[in-house]
């Protein structure tokens, strides 16, 4: 039984490592800041989360040692990483980083123009 559980936790941790690897590949492959941000803010989050979860479960079930700090890290990461993704893409847009040329539509452009008009008035 413990062997089965150990294998299960190993699979969880390996899954997290695989997701982190995939998000790294995504950073290299995807064309512009915004699409790269997609890869980072999702895959890296779930990757680190599942590594933490596997570690927590291993120490809890096998070693009988419950570490609540891992759970706290879990929650903090869950709350902060989407906000970080949002802030990075917003900063990129405000400093006029262009979208990929195959992008079809840009509703935010109108908003940027109208606020600029207000400032000049």
């Amino acid at each position: 039984m413990t062997e089965m559980l150990k294998i299960l936790f190993a699979v969880i941790i390996l899954f997290g490592a695989l997701l982190s690897l995939l998000s790294a590949i995504g950073i290299i492959r995807l064309p512009d800041v915004y699409t790269r941000n997609h890869a980072v803010s999702k895959s890296a989050t779930l990757g680190v989360l599942s590594i933490l979860l596997g570690t927590f479960l291993y120490f809890w079930v096998i070693e009988g040692y419950m570490n609540a700090r891992v759970i706290l890290g879990f929650v903090f990461l869950f709350l902060t990483s989407p906000v970080a993704g949002h802030l990075i893409s917003r900063a990129a847009y405000n400093s006029k980083v262009p979208l990929w040329e195959k992008s079809t539509q840009d509703d935010l452009k109108n908003k940027a123009r109208s606020t600029k008009g207000k400032v000049s008035q």
């Binding site: 997701l19 995939l22 998000s23 590949i25 995504g26 492959r29 995807l30 064309p31 512009d32 915004y34 699409t35 997609h38 890869a39 999702k42 895959s43 979208l99 990929w100 195959k102 992008s103 079809t104 539509q105 840009d106 509703d107 935010l108």
Partner: peptide, 16 residues
């Protein structure tokens, strides 16, 4: 995301 990253050709159409 995994599907997009692993797919060999990049046929996505991003936009805002």
């Amino acid at each position: 995301i995994m599907k997009v990253v692993v797919k060999p050709n990049l046929d996505i159409k991003p936009g805002i």
